[in-house]
Design a protein around this nucleic acid. Sequence first.
DNA 1: CGCTAACTTGAGAATGTTCAATAGACGTGG
DNA 2: CCACGTCTATTGAACATTCTCAAGTTAGCG
Lengths: 231, 231
Amino acid sequence: MNSCDACVVRNRSICAALDSVEVEALNAIGRRRTLEPGESLIWEDSESVLVANVVEGVLKLSTGTEDGREQIVGVVYPSDFIGRPFGATTPHSVTAMTEAKVCVFSRTDFDGFASRHPALEHKLLQRTLTELDRTRRWMLLLGRKNAEERVATFLLDMSERLVDPGCDTPDQPLDRFDLPFSRQQVGDILGLTIETVSRQFTKLKRDGIVDLPSRRAVVIRDRAELKALAG
Amino acid sequence: MNSCDACVVRNRSICAALDSVEVEALNAIGRRRTLEPGESLIWEDSESVLVANVVEGVLKLSTGTEDGREQIVGVVYPSDFIGRPFGATTPHSVTAMTEAKVCVFSRTDFDGFASRHPALEHKLLQRTLTELDRTRRWMLLLGRKNAEERVATFLLDMSERLVDPGCDTPDQPLDRFDLPFSRQQVGDILGLTIETVSRQFTKLKRDGIVDLPSRRAVVIRDRAELKALAG
DNA sequence: CGCTAACTTGAGAATGTTCAATAGACGTGG
DNA sequence: CCACGTCTATTGAACATTCTCAAGTTAGCG
């Protein structure tokens, strides 16, 4: 038995395109790695040497300006693919937000394997197209939404994406969850300062739309209203 | 002889993955179409029925909020691919900015053809990965840059992307070009109002960094300074 | 129980938006 | 070829929102 058989994301990651013999072959060129919160796997503008599947945890993709402003350009969850195959450099950093487990491959090894397995490339293409759609939707938020709309949209998005991946029930949005982000990171996702984020959180709580029992915990009390505020 | 042999983007579009027999087969399921400026090919949130290659012209990809704010989420040029293969809906509109020629396919026909031609899917994957990188880089602009930086970044980006595609010389950025966009559209790309864009253009002109001989024409007079302003 | 880092709150400043008026470019028809 | 009308862009002034800087406050951890 190979270790992939027990993998929690075996059937949701791009590996789902492979049969058990193929997945064994892929397993042979990869290795598991655990990341601590704050630890980076890939650095902005570095040579693209690694790609990986997320097995557990949440990671951010980020870029910044020379003078230190940061923008989070993506957040990845279990079963998501990270890194830049078929390309020289990775244009953003990849950093663990929580403790995370990833299944790492040398980029060139992976490129070769993928080229020999069209079904895998097909999965990767689908995933990349979906991610591009999601990223473009986020551009509307960054370009045209105000602080209140941004925070409301963010909370709704989180409630949909943090659903337990192993869960068999149809993916229903959560009304109660823990953010994997600090206020600063929420700001970096939304293109706002930490103070503006904090003020909007306070306002939503004051208006009874959400409850914030602890720093990271969120309870959505009036989803309909939150949707209305999201624009 | 099939019409693709004479196609100006034959060797730069995803069709470059195909030999002459295959390209003939693809040609059989596609058709040429001309779009007038302002004409849309695909509408936001519509069922994904069409995909296409851009042969000539410039098109925008855009989304908007219910109350009419628009954000341009991408701009495509000759040889670029448009539409959403392998998916139910297209999350953004596609509209011609200039007169444009496109090579259109039924989405389902294309999906089938692509599935039978891994080399084509591979090209499409590479293209999608590159587009995702570009889109994420634009998020830094929308989330963290001020008006001056946005306009400077935009002009540099345009000077690099508007190079004549047929040109054999190594792609050098243009110091003189015509914008395919109105001021309003530049605003919609940069997440700014038309007035703010106009003021920044005027400022760059006053400072001697660019010259604006007509509404659409741009001359970059001090590229180094423009880069410094881009942040 | 106290320390520290993270978060909240407040006040003022900066940046960009809005609304309104003007100027200029471009196409059309005389 | 010029006059006109319309659409686009520019400019100005007041306003709104978000940012910045600074001072508290609180949660979580040793």
